[in-house]
């Protein structure tokens, strides 16, 4: 394609985005749009799969059979989300093996929140309430994103996530209505998960390198700071109902704007975890890489068996 033709295609493409049309895998798209989407959707898929680990950590220790089954089902949903997000990424011309390689080599990122440890049962409640709550705010904003397979995956994922969030909040509510020991456990979990949850929305707008381009392509429809504010406004009253305190002495309600104003996020901690030095970065990667390596003989056997079956079928037919 000549330079002029590419420019022409780009104009047509930009006009489609402006008209809110969905871009489908077979449509022409600028290389940068393709790459940005591979990066973002796979990052999202990796987050689902790594996100199984902190919660999976409590399956064998869940306090009741009902909670155990619900937690198993939740972690299984996350595996399912991972599957269809990987499939959506594959439509952009990259294989699942390559995507895993990127994750395992540290080239691809996943949500930093999963680098924090889940150390008490209340953490399972807090993760559902806060982490899934923050994820939904991000993801609802993505249901209208311009790339069709991603937008459709988001619609489906959002439905399940909002169920998870209610489940997490219900765990917190049960703890807060329980014994003083249980309530203390809930407060402690809120103390540890609150700030990392705010960090889930990413750097401040002025420090976010991809925001402008992503807004233009409607890959993002709201900025990091807008979404973060929405999360705070939604979550503070929920903490009030639970009767536990958000660990932010600067938190105040501004009746004029109708928003809660909150204290400064520890951006040093944010960058430390993003750069791979959070409490569990190493453990999460070891778990993923370990599972993949331990599974290699199984995947090879499955391939070999399938080939043998195929040969048998052909031999029978001829």
């Amino acid at each position: 394609m000549s330079e002029k033709e590419v420019k022409n295609m780009e104009e047509i493409f930009e006009a489609r985005i402006a008209r809110d049309e969905k871009i489908e895998p077979k449509d022409w798209m600028p290389e940068k749009y393709r790459k940005t989407h591979i990066r973002q959707i796979s990052q999202h898929a990796h987050s689902e799969v790594v996100g199984m680990l902190p919660e999976g950590n409590w399956i064998t220790r869940a306090p009741s059979l009902r909670r155990k089954a619900a937690l198993l089902a939740k972690v299984q949903d996350e595996a399912g989300h991972g599957l269809y997000l990987y499939s959506a990424t594959e439509t952009l011309g990259i294989s699942r093996e390559e995507l895993y390689d990127q994750l395992h080599s540290g080239k691809a990122k996943y949500s930093s929140i999963f680098n924090y440890p889940s150390i008490t049962w209340a953490d399972i409640g807090a993760i559902g309430w806060l982490v899934d709550g923050a994820a939904i705010i991000n993801q609802v904003a993505l249901c209208g994103t311009s790339f069709g397979p991603y937008a459709r995956a988001m619609v489906r994922i959002c439905k399940e996530e909002s169920f998870h969030q209610r489940q997490g909040y219900e765990i917190m509510l049960t703890l807060c209505n329980g014994t003083p020991e249980q309530k203390e456990m809930a407060q402690d979990a809120l103390n540890r998960w609150w700030w990392p949850s705010l960090m889930m929305f990413g750097p401040r707008d002025e420090d976010s390198p991809h925001t402008a381009q992503s807004m233009k392509w409607k890959l993002k429809r709201k900025t990091n700071d807008e979404l973060r504010q929405q999360f705070v406004d939604q979550t503070v009253p929920q903490a009030d109902i639970l009767g536990i305190t958000i660990p932010d002495p600067d938190m105040t309600y501004n009746p004029e704007t109708g928003h809660y104003e909150f204290g400064e996020i520890d951006w040093d901690e944010f960058w430390q975890v993003v750069k791979g030095h959070g409490p569990c970065n190493k453990e999460r990667m070891e778990a993923r890489v370990g599972a993949w390596e331990r599974g290699s003989w199984v995947r090879e056997a499955a391939m070999s068996y399938a080939e043998k079956q195929e040969k048998k079928k052909i031999a029978k037919a001829s």
Binding site: V49, M52, L53, G56, I59, L72, V75, Q76, A79, G80, G82, L83, Y86, A287, G290, A291, W292, R294, G295, S296, V298, R299
Partner: peptide, 11 residues
């Protein structure tokens, strides 16, 4: 859960 040889067997 979360440690299987691939996502399909995990599920």
């Amino acid at each position: 859960c979360g440690h299987g040889p691939n996502l399909e067997t995990d599920i």
